[in-house]
């Protein structure tokens, strides 16, 4: 029997919708677990990748310093890196802030926002520093495959994952290619 593959997943500037879609593969997840184990992932709450994994699935764009570190951690420890969803591929909805300065965004939320009391911009050292712009993953590291959709449907994610763990071509047929 072929070696079991290892899969790691994470969400950067995303809404976890892509992870929900991954869970929507329902009983097919059991089929997947015959062929692969989950390493670091919000699904099992493992915080860091141990050793190398075969497939890294990343949801969300890159909006802060923590995202940059985690993305590099994944690139360094994943043989194949996959951008999952519109935010990872284009920046998506979070990148709508790119049309404004970071200062203007923060002031709109924390100084002038409706119902704001004790107005100040959060500066706790625990908070990761925001980048000036939100970036798609492939503008920061090399990405091997891209699965568009907001979120990609369970069928789409299944098509790509089952292809990658069994060594087939993961390219999407037109019927599964959606950006919305």
């Amino acid at each position: 029997m072929a070696r079991k593959r290892k899969i790691a997943t994470c969400s950067l500037a995303g809404c976890f919708g892509c992870h929900m879609s991954l869970l929507d593969t329902d009983e097919r997840l059991l089929e997947l677990l015959e062929l692969a184990d989950f390493d670091r992932s919000p699904i099992n709450d493992i915080k860091e990748i141990r050793g190398m994994v075969d497939i890294g699935l990343i949801e969300g764009g890159v909006c802060n310093v923590e995202n940059v570190h985690l993305l590099h951690h994944f690139r360094d420890h994943c043989r194949v890196l996959v951008s999952m969803g519109e935010c990872a591929i284009t920046g998506g909805i979070p990148s709508m802030r790119n049309h404004h300065t970071l200062k203007a965004c923060l002031e709109e939320s924390y100084i002038r926002g409706v119902g704001v009391e004790n107005a100040h911009i959060p500066d706790d050292p625990e908070l990761p520093l925001l980048l000036n712009k939100v970036y798609p993953l492939h503008e920061v590291v090399q990405v091997d495959y891209h699965v568009p959709g907001c979120p990609p449907s369970a069928d789409t994610l299944w098509h790509v994952l089952s292809a990658l763990v069994t060594g087939r071509d993961p390219r999407l047929p037109t019927t599964l290619l959606r950006y919305d």
Binding site: I89, T90, G91, V147, T174, L177
Partner: peptide, 15 residues
């Protein structure tokens, strides 16, 4: 883009 099989944009986003 669907018909041409565009799964991502090779170029940097302009925003």
């Amino acid at each position: 883009a669907y018909a041409l099989g565009v799964q991502y944009n090779h170029y940097p986003q302009f925003f």
